[in-house]
């Protein structure tokens, strides 16, 4: 029963997607082009986010921690 309702919900969601993006009025081959392009873009965005965001966050943290009176890296290097 729940599976059925979930399926209905997904198909409703897909219908809304069709309407908002105007894929509703596109011909099937245009729709597939549109979906492919959109999926590719989304996938690339997600992948780039996955790869680069942790690095950037780490760099940013280091930068701010050094600003907020953290010990300077070079001084640490000299000490050792």
């Amino acid at each position: 029963m729940d599976v059925k309702r979930f399926k209905e919900y997904i198909s409703w969601l897909y219908y809304q997607y069709l309407l908002v993006t105007c894929s509703y009025v596109l011909e099937p081959w245009e729709q597939s082009i549109f979906n492919t392009v959109l999926l590719t873009v989304v996938a690339m965005v997600v992948y780039t986010a996955y790869v680069f965001i942790p690095i950037h966050i780490r760099l940013a943290l280091e930068f701010f921690s050094s600003l907020c009176g953290g010990q300077h890296e070079s001084t640490v290097a000299i000490m050792s």
Partner: peptide, 16 residues
């Protein structure tokens, strides 16, 4: 915004 986006998509496919 969504309406303009829709017209944008349709226009792109129109050019295609």
């Amino acid at each position: 915004v969504l309406t303009y986006m829709g017209y944008g998509i349709l226009t792109l496919f129109g050019y295609l």
